[in-house]
Design a protein around this nucleic acid. Structure first.
Length: 565
DNA sequence: GTGGTGCGTATCC
DNA sequence: ATCCGACTAATTCGG
DNA sequence: CCGAATTAGTCGGATGGATACGCACCAC
């Protein structure tokens, strides 16, 4: 299949906003495609280059592509970035800058790019490592883009930056596969959750139909898509959503870990199916000691604890451990981690994903028999009273955790779905009024607007503004437009996509936690910042002080000591 | 060459 | 992670 | 009772912070 055929499909998808229409278009397209092409096309359609379980990555993103585009168009990087600021999409910039070169490059390469060619290029990019590889990748991209037509270049860059904006991803592609090969959407979804590979699912749907999809089964050592949860505002709403009575569990502030055991072998996978086994020997050992089963799959949270006190320590410590390749032993001594299994998906040859949650929980408790706190099932209570829920919530927060999870006792394990069978309850903190001292232009749909704001607090010691992070989400498009207009006259400097501003605009910002920051001059940053409202009624003099933020930071640790490394 | 530092990228939340 | 916007599915409203 | 209006649920997209790793580059 020629890449230009896929380009036409992408273009057609962009022309409609209806997801149903997009699915229909994709379905038609897949019908005529070969088995091999379908696999690549479906993966590309979801905006990915490789399947989710495939840990390869191309090691190329915006900065590299800016250089490459500059290189082949004969412009400077500065000019490319300037265009990028206006277009909000590197692909569009590539399309524009390469437009003039097209006649020449097409003459040089008569044979147009195929989908398989492109995939092979991505594979080669992923394979390039070692000294000189960065240069090599740039050369490879240059030759790839020179072979492409401008419109093809747009999509090559879109794929390479994982920013394919066709308004269709997994959800739509899933429907399209079902439609195209006349299999139920549920079967496609199930197969996708198990295989983690939409391309493979499409291939099986085409070649083997429904029986092929049904033959896929959950099995240890092959990660499945984790079930996700939606946020809920309070104890009452949590009970409401689930239906009056629910299972409540401590929500730990760690990393999601899927434990797979098959005989003596144990593997650990992250939420995105990265293999974390080598980085977490302590977790592996704890599982080994606490699990009474020959084979199983556990859904867990892994937390970091203080070596001395055994108390939960901040999430940043988890990041020191996870995905580590070097000094693993040293760090695992310094920052021990513990496992909190909360679900079991497979046990001794049997899939449990279709069983009700209560049953799974019972099996979990029977199977995970803690020898100490290193591997012990999550705290668990069945409650139907909002007072009791609130008390449990308080207890969780006070112990340094994130809050609670609430789960429907009768629900099966439905991966990838943020439904009403599982919700999360987190703490809502007070908000802060902070001053915008710099900002950045937006991307994609928000191109041309100034959409990301650097926030500062007042340092009363020397009357300076000290940055405490950035914020973007929380405002409507309309407010974004207004803010852009408000900001433009305040611009006092420009570099690349960033602008420096006269400190004047005050934003009320909500967040979940104050973190120690190595990146911001204040030494602090907000975790999960979002805008509550634009304080037109306030001026920079009304902004929070650094001292206050410092105090708030310390307040968080009334009950636990931070030990960042 | 070796070691430190900075940049870019990817992935945890 | 958070949040918004658009679309779609489910439910309620009004004649 | 049915179609219109309203509400609820999903998906896609745009954005936040920290950290580890791999590579480039510079100082010695």
């Amino acid at each position: 299949m020629y890449f230009k055929e896929l380009v036409s499909l992408f273009d057609e998808l962009c022309a409609y906003s209806s997801r149903l229409k997009k699915a229909e278009i994709i379905a038609g397209f897949l019908t005529g495609a070969s088995e091999d092409d379908i696999e690549i096309v479906c993966t590309f359609l979801t905006g990915r280059i490789f399947p989710a379980w495939d840990t390869r990555d191309i090691g190329v993103a915006g900065k590299t592509l800016v250089k490459v585009i500059a290189n082949i168009s004969g412009k400077s990087s500065g000019e490319v970035v300037e265009s990028y600021r206006d277009t909000g999409h590197l692909g569009i910039t590539a399309e524009r800058f390469l437009g003039k070169k097209v006649a020449m490059s097409l003459a040089a390469f008569e044979e147009p790019l195929t989908v398989a060619d492109l995939y092979r290029c991505f594979e080669e990019l992923a394979a390039a490592t070692g000294k000189g590889s960065a240069q090599k990748k740039q050369r490879m991209l240059s030759s790839l883009l020179s072979r492409a037509t401008p419109r093809e270049a747009y999509y090559v860059v879109s794929l390479a930056t994982r920013n394919l904006l066709t308004g269709s991803k997994e959800g739509v592609t899933e429907d399209a596969i079902a439609q195209s090969f006349s299999v139920p959407a549920d079967a496609v979804r199930r197969a996708w959750m198990l295989a983690n590979d939409i391309g493979l699912v499409a291939r099986i749907a085409k070649t083997q139909g429904l029986p092929g999809l049904q033959a896929l089964n959950i099995e240890p050592m092959r990660p499945v898509r984790p079930m996700l949860a939606q946020n809920v505002a309070g104890a009452t709403e949590a009970l409401d959503v689930i239906g009056g009575r629910a299972a409540f569990e401590t929500k730990y502030d760690g990393a999601r870990i899927q434990v797979h055991k098959s005989g003596p072998k144990i593997k650990l996978f992250s939420r995105k199916m990265e293999d974390l086994t080598e980085a977490l020997p302590d977790i592996r050992a704890a599982v080994n000691e606490s699990v009474r089963a020959d084979s199983l799959i556990l859904d867990c949270e892994a937390i970091a604890v203080d070596k001395g006190t055994g108390k939960v320590i901040p999430f940043q410590n988890v990041l020191n451990r996870i995905r580590r390749k070097y000094r693993v032993r040293e760090l695992s001594d310094q920052i021990p981690m513990q496992l909190r299994p909360f679900d079991i998906l497979y046990l001794d040859g049997e899939s449990l994903v279709d069983r009700p949650f209560v049953e799974r929980r019972a099996l979990l408790e029977k199977t995970v028999v803690p020898v100490d706190k290193r591997c012990t099932p999550s705290e668990f209570k069945i409650l139907d009273d909002s007072e009791a829920v609130a008390a449990f919530f308080r207890q969780s927060i006070d112990a340094g955790n994130e809050g609670l999870m609430a789960k429907n006792l009768d629900a099966d394990y439905s991966p990838g779905i943020r439904g009403r069978n599982m919700v999360k309850l987190k703490e809502t903190l007070e908000s802060l009024d902070l001053v915008v001292i710099a900002a950045e232009y937006g991307h994609g749909r928000k191109a041309g607007w100034i959409t990301s704001y650097e926030l500062a607090a007042r340092d009363e010691d020397n009357e300076q503004w000290v940055p405490v992070g950035r914020v973007s989400s929380g405002v409507s498009d309309e407010q974004l437009r207004a803010l852009t207009e408000q900001i433009k006259p305040l611009i006092i400097g420009e570099h690349g996509r960033m602008v420096d501003l006269e400190p004047q605009i005050v934003l009320e910002v909500k967040f979940n936690e104050i973190q120690k920051s190595p990146n911001y001059a204040s030494g602090f940053a907000l975790r999960f910042p979002r805008i509550v409202r634009i304080r037109d009624d306030k001026g920079p003099d009304d902004a929070e002080t650094l001292e206050r933020i410092d105090a708030l930071y310390r307040l968080q640790f009334k009950l636990r000591e931070p030990t960042p490394t």
